[in-house]
Simulated assay, not measured.
Amino acid sequence: MMPRHWSRRFATSATVLGLAAALLAGCGSSGKPKPAELGPNPGLLGVRQVWTAKLGEVGYPLDVQVTGQQVALASSDGTVLALDARSGRELWRASAKAKLSAGVGSDGQRTAVATQANEVVVFEAGRELWRQKLSAQIATAPFVAGGRVFVLTADRSVTALDGASGRRLWTQQRPGDPLVLRQSGVILAVGDTLLVGLSGRLVGLNPLNGQVRWDAAVATPRGTNDVERLVDLVGRVSRVGDSVCVRAFQIGVGCVDAARGNLAWTKPSQGYAGVHGDDRMVYGPESDGKIVAWRRSDGERAWVSERLRYRQLTAPLALGRSVIVGDETGLVHFLSREDGSPLTRVSTDGSAIAAAPVVAGDTLVVVTRNGGVFGYSPE
């Protein structure tokens, strides 16, 4: 599991949520809220398990990376693995020779992870190409694109490294905050612009030199102490064309027009896991397990489901007619995109789902804390 301590620079999301839970407990609650009863499995959607694979324990903010039919993932002990999503067949396996703090980034050719010693390690077809040590901790998977590896670090800096050699190309740094989350942040590309989450802002950078092209405020700090003023954008994100929608930890959800750098809308939302969606809706879980659907056009709520309350949900995946989330008991829930009603659910190995579900080709891929990797074929 994630470390429970916090330092001058890092705070875990579990720590912040734990403080909130303690305050609630002091107001009359007795311990952890009881998860909602699920009732019988409705079985309204056919989901067939097609393969399984095994990875080591996953206790860090894993980002499962999909490139075509290839799925790249990594365990806490530094094992990095590439699988064929159609069969679950292992394509290659390698080791970073150190415990990981973030991963995985890949463009299908090069695959990158970050270690707890602040090193970025890059592999090609299972062979280590290079490793480069940075000056700050890394909790967000490196982003690999355009022959470069882009790294977002805890001191609010973005560094571009040459994909072939690891040579530093440029660094863009913002003033650091007293605390940032030990949770996956936001870094992606839209067209020829690199988008990064810096505090509560989504910033568009020129990937060639790091110069700022635009800066959109999704959320602003509030409160009187460092914990209350903690603002971070967290992964995953929902991108449809130039529309990029993100979650600001425990503050709100918002969408930005990445072509112009304008904030389209922002709405209050108490959540810590990212969002996903389609051209109509953006979906995301609240901290208490409610799942909300916002209209992508204006941010108004379309529906709210309370059927999975207090189940410690992952970020969702919008796929077919479903919104798919994992929970802390190893269940994967399929809800209707139209109203949040349950369609079906499947079980894994009983340990918590460790990362947001992903889709590669026609295969849904789910990873658990105990290192189980499951491939499903949804209807």
Rank of each mutant, 00 (worst) to 15 (best):
V144R: 05
A117R: 12
P207C: 14
R337L: 14
D77R: 03
G254A: 04
Q65V: 09
P221C: 04
S101Q: 09
G350H: 13
E338R: 12
R182M: 02
V367G: 10
Y376A: 03
I138C: 14
L179A: 13
M281F: 11
V47F: 14
V212M: 01
H333Q: 03
A139Q: 04
A136N: 13
S165Y: 11
D242V: 13
P221E: 05
Q132E: 15
R295E: 04
V104P: 00
W130K: 07
G185P: 02
C255V: 06
R280G: 08
G223E: 03
D215N: 14
V47S: 13
V365S: 00
T159A: 07
A293S: 12
R296W: 02
S95R: 08
F10P: 09
A189L: 11
L100I: 14
Y376N: 00
G371C: 02
L169W: 10
L100S: 09
E128Y: 05
E90M: 08
A98C: 13
G252N: 05
V158I: 14
A264D: 08
W170K: 05
A160C: 09
A94C: 11
G277A: 13
V58W: 05
Y283A: 14
E228F: 05
A22G: 13
L331W: 11
F249W: 12
R167P: 09
V218M: 01
V64R: 07
A96Y: 06
E228C: 00
S87L: 04
F123R: 05
E124Q: 15
E306L: 10
S377F: 09
R201C: 10
V275N: 08
K97Q: 15
G372P: 00
R260Q: 15
E328R: 03
D162G: 13
G372L: 11
G103M: 08
L83W: 03
T314K: 08
V80I: 12
S165H: 11
A216F: 02
K97G: 10
P35E: 05
L233M: 11
F10I: 14
Y283G: 07
Q132N: 15
A102H: 06
F150L: 15
L364G: 02
D155F: 06
L24Y: 13
S87T: 15
T220P: 09
A85R: 00
D84Q: 05
L343F: 01
L134K: 03
S238C: 10
T348W: 06
V122W: 05
V323A: 02
V366P: 01
A22P: 08
M1L: 04
P378Q: 13
W51Q: 11
A112H: 03
G320N: 06
